[in-house]
Design a binder for these strands. Structure first.
Lengths: 140, 140, 140, 140
DNA sequence: TTTT
DNA sequence: TTTT
């Protein structure tokens, strides 16, 4: 029976998306997303906690991310968790957990309006896709 | 502004929860959860893909997890992502991403009914909590 | 800017799905879903509260619902809210809120195993779709 | 077994929240929220669809809604579905489906920054609560 | 390491 | 009208 693996985030990009064009015409965008949380510790002091997430967007969604998202942009992201292993420079097995984006919505009234250099999506373009990444083509 | 950091999973436990009792009376349970996904590859062959998640449940939710969950149990989990760093045995900095559970619901008609040895929750007990982990008391 | 309109439910069907075949080859399934909640009132008495939801599933998802879901089946449903207006028998305008399903996952170990008469999905069939209903073809 | 009844919305308020103070010191805020969706119809024409949701926020969350939200404010809302029945002016039984908010997050860089007259939340105040409405005190 |  |  199929399970459920769903992530929902609202936060701000830590850097501009990096896009790689893969053999076969596919592309993938990577960026980090910060989600902030505020709570009071035992002494009643207000504490801010920032969690950083690794986001991957594939194919059409990668192109849209490259076009409309920039460092600082506030977005809603829906996706799924994926943990990959890779060999580090010392040939040690390491693990990294990413969110593979299925949907991205720009938040705030007017993206690019505050002079952040990002394009504004025409309302004809939907910033939303749902597709399987091709794992054998992962760029790293 | 507070962001959103939410994870929703439906899957099966890979092992019995391990519970640790911390100084100060707190407790934390750890277990892994498998979420299964099915799709067809380019050749049209059906492929099963299993993603493994590290789950942490704190305090009252840890006690409930220890009491009612076992290897194989199907659960709905809602929580948030947290990536921690730690030093491995070679004093290298490593990262691990976990889901801190806020809510756990047992699925399927009759938990423990298949002779899996887990207790069945009395309907007076709510298998749901929402609380902040105390990070300075992390067991590892 | 596109918004977000998402519903996530885990509950049991109150009746077998009713499927209608529309002109043009489309089909739609309707059923109700009960979600149960337990809490203690001010007197400390345990109270059960059942919320009933109207679910609609379209096209391929309608066929799958008809095939695999029955009264009593426990399911995970993801979808979106839609409120429609219609004229009642006295020509009064009435409103009904439904969840248009995007994804349905059967829960519990063995659907149909308890002799409920529903078919068991072959693992080749995915009980998951994501598509736009055609509003001009609504059956009522 | 407890079910799941969860709604996640990102949209804009259609009007200022209306707050009622109930006997016993409780309060409740009501407002409508629009979620926009864009898609192409069969002719390839771009179509915008707006869905309107009835939101209720209770107690502390009602006060925060009254203080920080205004017509047009973009928010993230998490809550649950509740359908109530009431008697209309002709003593007919009617149904209304609402989302009872558990969490509300203001979106966009600077709430109130565009001169909309709403206060800006001090970072010491958390715009998030999770509590049961007292149904016997519903204001209508 | 789960489940079907 | 479901389920426990």
């Amino acid at each position: 029976m199929a399970g459920v693996n769903k992530v929902i985030l609202v936060g701000n990009l830590g850097k501009d998306p990096e896009v790689r064009h893969l053999e076969g015409g596919n592309s993938v965008a990577h960026f980090t997303l910060a989600t902030n949380e505020y709570y009071k510790d035992k002494q009643g002091t207000r504490v801010e906690r920032t969690e950083w997430h690794n986001i991957s967007a594939w194919r059409g969604l990668a192109e849209l991310a490259a076009k409309y998202l920039k460092k600082g942009t506030q977005v809603y992201i829906e996706g799924k968790l994926r943990t990959r292993q890779y060999q580090d420079k010392d040939q040690q097995t390491r693990y990294i957990t990413e969110i593979i984006a299925d949907e991205i919505s720009l938040l705030g009234g007017r993206p690019g309006g505050a002079g952040n250099g990002a394009a504004s999506p025409s309302t004809d373009e939907s910033v939303s896709l749902r597709q399987e990444p091709e794992l054998d083509q992962l760029p790293f």
